[in-house]
Design a protein around this nucleic acid. Structure first.
Lengths: 153, 153
DNA sequence: TGACTCATGTCAGAAGTCTGACATACGGTG
DNA sequence: CACCGTATGTCAGACTTCTGACATGAGTCA
C-alpha cells in the first residue's frame, strides 16, 4: 500500500472514526430499545418532548436528525398509540405544539434509564475532564460542518 | 424543568452530541457525493476496496457499518456497473474476494477528493494535537461500546 | 469418519427514511 | 393592499437498509 495518495487513511481518518463511534452507539441503543418495542427515533422524539414540551413536528425532526416527513409518520403513530397529543388546529401559524401524555411519559422513563446506562458505558473509561474535552471537540466539528462552505472568493 | 432527573440533558449529552456531529458529517458527505451519483455506502465500499483489495462482501459490510445483506445488494449493483469484479467461484471457503476495476478506481478518485475536502473542513478549527486527542477519545468510546456489557456478577 | 459450530453468500419480505409535491400561514416590501 | 419568500404539515411513491431464512464451505473434536 505504498501508493501515492490513498483517498483517506481509514485507520486515522477522524471522519471514519466518528462514523465508527456513532455506529457503535447506534447498535448499542438499538440493542436496549428494541426489546422495549421502540426505535431510536421513537425514543429521541419522546425525550425531546420531555425536555422541551410543545415542540412542533419540524422542530422535533431537526432535533432527531431526520426529515420532517419522517417525523410526521412517526408522530402519527405515536398519536395513535396515545403517547403524544397534538391540537387539531394550530394556535399560531401552522406549527402544532406536541405534548407527551402520561402514558408517553411512563414509556419514556424505562427507555431513558436504559439509554442512560448505554451512555455511561460508553464513557466508562473517560474522566470528567476528558468528557468535557470531547464535548468541545464535537461541538467544534459540528459547527465547522454546519458552517457555509466558505465560497472560493 | 427542575424535575428530579430528566432522562438526559440533551445539550451536554455526549451521546447526543456524537449523533449530532455524525449527522452533520453525513449530510455534508451526501451533499458532495450525490452530485457524483454516489451514496455514502457506495463511496465507502470503493474506498475500502482501494485500501484493502480483495475484501469479501462480509468484510466490506463490517467496514462500512451495514449488514452483509445490504452490502450484497450494493455489490451486485457495482458489479453490474463495472466498478468492481468478483470471481465466479470462491478460491477458498465461500468468501469472494472483490477487486476494483479501472473504472471503479477512476470514479473513486473524484469522490475521494471531495470527501477529503469535507473532512478537512470538519477539522479546520482543530490543531494536530486536538485531532490526536479526538482520535483517542473516539477510539476509547467505540471500544467501550463494543466491549461485552460486563455481566452483573 | 461424522457431528457440530461458525462464517459466508444470497434470496425474500418488512420497516424506516428519503425526495417530490402541494396547500396553508406568517412576515417583509413594493 | 398585493406580492413574494420562507416555514410548516401532509400525502404519495421510491429507495435503502434491515430482519429472517436457507444453503454452502471450513475448522474442531470425539
Amino acid at each position: 500500500m505504498s501508493q501515492g495518495e490513498p483517498g483517506i487513511e481509514l485507520d486515522t481518518s477522524l471522519g471514519y472514526m466518528l462514523k465508527a463511534a456513532s455506529s457503535a452507539l447506534h447498535s448499542a441503543l438499538e440493542a436496549v430499545l428494541s426489546p422495549l418495542g421502540m426505535t431510536i427515533t421513537h425514543y429521541s422524539c419522546l425525550e425531546l418532548l420531555a425536555q422541551r414540551p410543545g415542540l412542533s413536528n419540524s422542530e422535533l425532526a431537526r432535533g432527531a436528525f431526520v426529515t420532517r416527513q419522517s417525523m410526521n409518520v412517526l408522530l402519527q403513530a405515536l398519536e395513535r398509540q396515545g403517547l403524544v397529543i397534538r391540537p387539531a388546529r394550530a394556535p399560531v401559524g401552522r406549527a402544532l405544539p406536541t405534548e407527551l401524555t402520561a402514558l408517553g411519559r411512563r414509556q419514556l422513563e424505562t427507555a431513558s434509564a436504559a439509554v442512560r446506562r448505554v451512555e455511561q458505558a460508553m464513557l466508562a473509561d473517560l474522566d470528567a475532564g476528558q468528557q468535557d474535552q470531547m464535548r468541545r471537540l464535537l461541538t467544534t466539528c459540528t459547527a465547522a460542518l454546519t458552517r457555509p462552505p466558505a465560497s472560493a472568493t
